[in-house]
Design a protein around this nucleic acid. Structure first.
Lengths: 205, 205
DNA sequence: AGGATGGTAGCTCGGCCGTGCTATAAAGCC
DNA sequence: GGCTTTATAGCACGGCCGAGCTACCATCCT
């Protein structure tokens, strides 16, 4: 039986178990024992694929950030590919909405992201993944705003640097509040706030 | 020696030790042993003032939120007391700036707040304090915006509900990013983003 | 056929955890 | 002075943790 196993797939399966445990009970509950049970494996089997507990958690975070990144980048392609300016605004909003927990899947990802990102402050091993996703988000937001400016949809004198920070902070804040207060910030409200913000950018300073 | 001790003061002193440990090593490090050592007490002494480990952590979070609340409410009084509209804008900005980690003290508080608030998701005992501060912040932001509108500094057709959510989310997001990326978001940048946001609210939709 | 390889499993150890429980000493009260 | 109260201290237990290590077994290679 053993040889035919794809190690990468196994690692991913275990990582998913980690994410499920973290989503359900928090990062501190992601022990080897709990993860092994969640994955339906023995503790020794899990350790066969991960030398360290740290490596397990870091890899799981990498899976999470990779998933989020892929979903956003797909929208980036869709935004930049067609040159029809008519749908540009809609596409931009949809792209930025990918950062918000608008459905259950993205809410779960947001919960996980907040858990790992905040844990990175005291777990140096998680910092690279946290920085990468955060920088990536700022980069995407910056590209969207700059693109909108070049397309004429946004005022030419808009300070893209400051506005990118403001918008990315808004997205982060909405995500954080949605995670901390599930039920209060519904998907409709989140979308409305985002739309209001994008509208406000169109009016000259 | 024993009788002359003020229990409240002792509990506060131990709570401060909790906050120091959490700030340095994260909430998961706030064990009775670590806290007792930080407070310079024996583990048994700490337990004399707190029946439970849970109670200790919850009380410490209460101390934190109480501290933040008191600081903000002082600004609220200062904002509402004088009726000189000239300084109103400045006072409002200063009040809102109290939510941002502009100096080392507030940065430390922001770190602690994020740690406790995110932990509240899997620790039900922390939820009340988290909700209270979060609701309080939204309430203060709402009052500031509504006050600005009534004073004529903001457009009359501004949707205070949505704008309050947007602004409070922005403040939360800036705080989160400043905590996650210390050094990147300097105090100057934070203030600039806040100022830009308040400026943008003055222009009619 | 038989050794090598790699997946699966779990026992064991030392360490930290919260907590039940007990012991000691200092202060106030009669 | 004796008794109660309370602050301080810490021992001991059971539980969970990560990690070292060994054992077993299925497959593949020669």
């Amino acid at each position: 039986m053993p040889k035919i196993v794809d190690p990468g797939a196994r690692r991913k399966a275990v990582a998913e178990a980690v994410l499920r445990v973290v989503g359900r009970s928090g990062l501190e509950a992601a022990s080897l024992r709990n993860v092994a049970e969640e994955a339906g494996l023995a503790i020794g089997s899990v350790r066969h694929y991960f030398s360290d507990h740290d490596e397990l958690v870091i890899f799981a975070m990498g899976e999470l950030t990779g998933r989020i990144e892929a979903r956003v980048l797909a929208h980036v392609d869709r935004l930049l590919d067609p040159a029809d300016a008519a749908e540009r605004r809609t596409r931009a909003e949809d792209l930025l909405a990918e950062f918000l927990p608008l459905d259950q899947e993205r809410h779960e990802e947001a919960v996980l992201w907040i858990a790992f990102a905040t844990a990175a402050r005291t777990r140096p091993g998680l910092l690279p993944h946290a920085r990468q996703l955060q920088d990536g988000m700022l980069g995407v937001v910056t590209r969207v705003l700059r693109g909108g400016q070049e397309a004429g949809g946004l005022p030419a004198d808009l300070d893209i640097g400051t506005e990118s920070l403001r918008l990315s902070a808004l997205l982060d804040g909405l995500t954080l509040q949605a995670v901390l207060q599930p039920g209060t910030l519904t998907a409709d409200v989140l979308r409305q706030v985002l739309r209001r913000h994008l509208d406000s950018l169109r009016t000259p300073a």
